[in-house]
Structure formats: C-alpha cells, structure tokens
Design a binder for these strands. Sequence first.
DNA 1: AAGTTTTAGACAAACGATTGTCTTGTGCCC
DNA 2: GGGCACAAGACAATCGTTTGTCTAAAACTT
Lengths: 396, 396
Amino acid sequence: MQPLKDEDVGGTGIAAEVGTPETRKTRRHGGISEKPGEEVAESAVGVREKNQNSVEKPVSLKILADYLGLCPATVSVVLNNVPGRSIPAETRERVRAAARKFNYQPSLLARSLRKQRTFTVGVLAPELSDGYHTMVMSGIGDHLMREGYFYLTAHHRHKPDMIEEYPRLLLGRGAEGLIAIDTALSHGLPVPVVAVAGHRKISGVTNVVLDHKRAAELSLRHLYQLGHRHIAFMRGQRFSADSDDRWKSIVNVAGELGLEIRPELTIQLERDLTSPELGYPVVQELLQKGRRFTAIVSFNDIAAIGAIRALRDRNLRVPEDVSVVGFDDIQVAAYHHPRLTTIRQPLRHMGETAARILLQRLQGFKDYPEEFAVPPELIIRETTAPPNKKQLKQQR
Amino acid sequence: MQPLKDEDVGGTGIAAEVGTPETRKTRRHGGISEKPGEEVAESAVGVREKNQNSVEKPVSLKILADYLGLCPATVSVVLNNVPGRSIPAETRERVRAAARKFNYQPSLLARSLRKQRTFTVGVLAPELSDGYHTMVMSGIGDHLMREGYFYLTAHHRHKPDMIEEYPRLLLGRGAEGLIAIDTALSHGLPVPVVAVAGHRKISGVTNVVLDHKRAAELSLRHLYQLGHRHIAFMRGQRFSADSDDRWKSIVNVAGELGLEIRPELTIQLERDLTSPELGYPVVQELLQKGRRFTAIVSFNDIAAIGAIRALRDRNLRVPEDVSVVGFDDIQVAAYHHPRLTTIRQPLRHMGETAARILLQRLQGFKDYPEEFAVPPELIIRETTAPPNKKQLKQQR
DNA sequence: AAGTTTTAGACAAACGATTGTCTTGTGCCC
DNA sequence: GGGCACAAGACAATCGTTTGTCTAAAACTT
C-alpha cells in the first residue's frame, strides 16, 4: 500500500491547484480521519452495540469522495471504469486504494434505483420443504448465483390470493423477472416469467416442463412388457400444475398400448401433503374395497412410499405381489427398501434451465421458446417385477 | 369504524373550496388520461412486447400526483396515513381512488433507500437441497413472510471464501440482518445475526441450537436400557457446525452411563453428501473389518438409511441383529422400512425461532439471549430393539 | 377589523448512486 | 501570443420515495 504515500505527495502537488483551495478546505470529511496513518477510532459506546465488530458501517460514495477531495461522480466513474472519461492513472489508483481501505461497497439499492436494474429475480413456490421444490430451487439458485443474480423467495401454499399478491410484491421489491414453480398463475406479468411445471399457456410465460408423454411411455411400457395388465393409477392433486398433463399422457399412452384404465382402479389424490401419508390411506382404501391389481403407477415417489407401506400392512409383497412405479426419483428413492423403480425428473436441471431462460430473456433475448420440454428417465430398481400368477388368477 | 364516515361528511363541506382551480388545470397529466371514465389505451405496438398483459408498467408517485393535480409529497402522505397532517377526507378519498385505479405500487426500492429500512433479511445456508436446511428454511420463510419481510438466499457449499463474501453481498443488497444455517461464520457483522446450528460464540450472533446434551441422553439412555453395550458411533463431518457439540455431548453422556466409546467403532464422516450414500460405505467398511456391535448411533437419518442398507446387504437384520438410531426425523423416517427410531430435531420450529429472534433484534430489542436451546424428542419406532444374544456372544 | 390559528398543500432536501453536460486550466500548434 | 484541443473533474439532474419546513388562504378570535 505504499502507492498511497506516493500519491499523497504527488496528489498534493497537483490537486492543490484543482478547484479553489477553499472548496477543499471547507469540505468536511464525513467522519473519516484524513490522516492516512490514523485508523478510524471505534466510538467508545461501552456496552451498547458490541456487535459492530469486524465489518464497519458502510461507507458511501460521498464520504469517500470527501476524503479524496473529489466529487462523488468522479469516484463513481473510476470505480466503474466508465469508458470515454479521462482520469489520470494516478488518480484512479488513489481512488481504488481508498475504496479498498474503507472497504467501500456500493449500495445496490441506490444503484438499482438509478439504473433501473436490480439483478434480482423472484422465485415463487407452493412450499419450501418438500423434495420437489427444493431440488428445483437448488438448480435455480445455483445458476442465478453463478450469474451474479440474487433472488427473493415466496411461498403460497396454493392459496389463490397469495398467488395473486406475491408476484406484485416481488415486483415492487425490484424483481426483474419471476420463476414460478408448480404455481397456477392466472395471467401474465409485466416482466419475463418462466414457469416450472406450469401447465397453462400464458403469453409472456415460458414453460419448462417434463416431457410427460415420454414419461408415460417409459413407465407404462415397462409395466406392460413385464406383463402387467391390471394397473392402478394415481392422479395428482388438482392444485398441482403437473397433474393434468401427466394424466392426459397416461391416458394417451395407455390407449396406444391397449391398456385399460379402470375408474375403480383410479385414485384421485386430494390432500396437500408432502409426506408419504399422501399415498397411504388411498391405497389402503383400494385394498379394503377388494380391488385387484398387479401394479400401481404412483403420482410421485413420496406417495409411492406411502403406497408400499399400505401394501405391506396388508401383507402384500412388493414387487412380488404388486409392482410400484414412482415418479421424481427423490434422494431416498434409491435407499428405500425395496429400492424404488421410478421415473426420474431431472429437477435440478429443470431449475437451472428455467433460470437460464429467464436470464436470457432479461438480457433482451426475444426469441425464447414458449415451452421447453426436458426428457425423463426410467430408473429400474426393485419395486417392479412380472405380475404374480396368483394375483392374476384372482382377477376378473 | 364509523368515525370515518363522520369525517367524510364534515370534510366535504370544507375541502370544496380548497386550492386554485387554475393550479389544477395547468398541471399536465403525465401520460395518464384525466377523464375518470376513460381507460388507458394499450399502445398498439403490434407483435412486440406481447407479454405486457394484465399488469401494467408500474405507475410512480409523481405520475399519480400529476394526474391528481397534487404534489407527490401529498399523495405519499395520504397513502401512508402519516399522522399529524391535515388533508381533507375528500382529497384523501380522491387519492386513494386514483391509487386503486392505476394499481399504484410504491417502489420498495426507493422507499428503502429513503427510509434506510428494507424489510429484507439474508439467509445463508450450505445447500438448498437437503432435508435439514430445507426444513429450517421453511420455518424461517413462514415467519418472515408472516411478518411482512422478504429474504434473499445464498448458499456457499461450505466454501470459506463464499462464507466470507456472501454476507457482504447480502448487506450490499440491503439485508438488515442475517440468518446463517449450519454456517461457520468467522466473525461478527455490522447487523444482527442469528445462527442456526452455529457452534461458535461470536459477539452479536445469537445461536439457536438443539439441546445436544439432552439429545445424547435420549438416544444413549434408550439404547442402554434396551441392553446395548457395544455401540458404534458416527461423528459428523468436520465442516458441519453441529458435529462437535453433538460429539462432545455423546462422550459426556456415555461417560455418565458408563458406556465405553471405542475408537474402532467410531466412524468419522467426511464426505459432503446429502444422500444415504453418506452412511453406506462407512458402515460397510466397519463390517468388512469384522467389528462387532449391536447398535449404531447415526449422525443423521440420511446416514442411518444408508447404514441400514449396508447392514442388510451383509444379511444383518434391523433391529433384530443391529439397532439403529437416527437423528433429525426427516419426513421419510416414518415411512422407511423399518420405520426409523430417531431423535427429532424441531427444525421448522428452530427456523421460526431464529426468524423471530432476528426480527426482535431488528426492532431494537437489545436484551436478546446469546444462545437459545431447543429441546429434542426421542421418537421410538422400529429400528431399535434389545440386542441379539448371538451377536453379543460373538463379541469379545 | 386586525390578529391569530388552522388548514391544505407546496417546496425542497434528503437517501446513494449514475451519467450527460460544463468549466477550467493546461499544453500544443503555428 | 492567440486559438484550439484536450485533460481532469466539477456540476447537476435523475431514479421514486419520505419528511421537515414553509406559505397562502381561510377560519376563528376578541
């Protein structure tokens, strides 16, 4: 940091002539001592405010400028390397040294206000605590932070009034764009929006979705090839944006394969749960009613785990008596007993994709796709096997 | 609320004469049509910017003021119900009606700059995707949103330079306080900080921690009472803030019970994983080395699930041959097979507590505790049972 | 009728940056 | 030595609010 000393000397020579000396004399130094050697004294407030250690209260541009005997604009110009301005290298270095010395951090708030850019986006999700949203958020967070963006999170628990209100609040907070996870937006917004697992087509909203057709093909073909013909299906909750698309694809593919979808073997999930309890009572009920089936296509892994528990509790073995296919491939799926056969949604990847598309749109990229489909993957583990002859015989 | 009506009546009579009509006429209307009935016409830009539907570009205070023929300050005063200002009820209503009509949303950015209050806090976590942080975040998010705060999230993957850098960035973004989850802060900050599962004592940082002593008592007593004497222990990863405290408590309680902690039965977790893979290879190794034990005290549920898988893969039954106690009580714990006996950490509650304490401190509450311990709970399920005689006999 | 109080707002100065325009002094050229 | 270009930075407006002060007119007082 010796340059500081040199500059002080040189600076004195030059700067003494710049502006009226009076101007400089009359400038106050905003609380920062001007003698280079002298450190800023901690105000001895005694017991109060003991938590103000290690990082000092932020220094503003103005204070820095006063200290340097420059005007704030010049300091700003130097620190931002604004092109087309002539500032001598010596002054530049002097400014940068001071900025380092006082650990100057520009107020992003003020800068955002001025530039009308916040480098902040809003993320809207129904919940924070379950695996699905969490993985997507993780992908989103990774990408955004890598690109120097921050994000505000809000969750709405599927309540329509909050789904209506939070986007507005987030925009008021300066969010330049929004990512909505599994959220039924009812209309567009004045900023770019990317929806993950959004089902509706809304102008201005890019949908990042799973390729549900392919997913249905993977799971149904798998069961079909194993020999299953009597399959129970779970439909997702109505509030879940994916439910409809996924169901349509299943119906579609079942038709192609010549598989029958029986109403009495179709479970409609209703409860807003993120624990296996979601799948337990509904399968239990199916069994109590004496329904016969050799496989279950679950809406997700969590429900599949609940379903398996319900089967076990009725002394049915998985996969010997009943096969189960999950959906999502959450982390515990591979460590469940038995290991879960499932359709992997590349959730983290979907989150990253959503973030990437949003940032592209923020950078003025106009030619964005209306929909972006991500391919699923069939992960065959231990919960699927050929149907049990005995079970089959009992049917019909 | 009837008083309001009275004012309306009284106000009308007074306010009709106020202000020169000329003043109001000559003001321009800043692009907003002045005829109350006439809606703002969508500028017909054709193909471009089709995403600007439903919510218009934000209207500023100035535009609203111009439209009303008032000055921005007055409008602000009305909308914020600033006390001690005399504005007739008629004008107030006129202002509010206009605000509703144009869906005025104050710029929180500008307001924050002016008031030096952002109602935003920063949340710092190692990861976003695992159950622990997710549950804590969920509690934090709930409380903050309930109180009208927003939060910025950052994750650092335990990298020290990021742990150093992000707090600064978050403060630059206007965070008024910080909640650090499982993060090894090295020093205080110029704002209130609450650490969840932080281990160090740092002035200005309130620690919200689990009562580890109690947790160790619950799990060890339980195993002890069942008859276990040869217990394997997992120590958490060194980067995990909880590891040390938890281990010390275990050592402590083991001493009180007269239980021996054998180095050859102690597993040191090293890998930075959030999947059951964390616990699989380490237990596998223990078994390969031929170590004898009748119970495992796992560092967390995820690792416990991996451990159980490793035991099974060596044809050891849980709990008949080996008992396993987890930690955390994550959602799948109750639905694992067998259902996991574990120590429940009230994670969501801890998150809420952290948020609550932070907000209290932000509101100037000085007398905050340095540490806040939350009691754990023993959840006995199916992975613990009395030790197997045969296993016992083989020992020693 | 003059003085005082109250009312209804306007005015202007912040908050902390960025950026287009102006000023002043210096160096250079012929 | 007069004109010109350029260097170095000051100045001022701006982003959208909030808030303390000020003013003109009206209303009340005696």
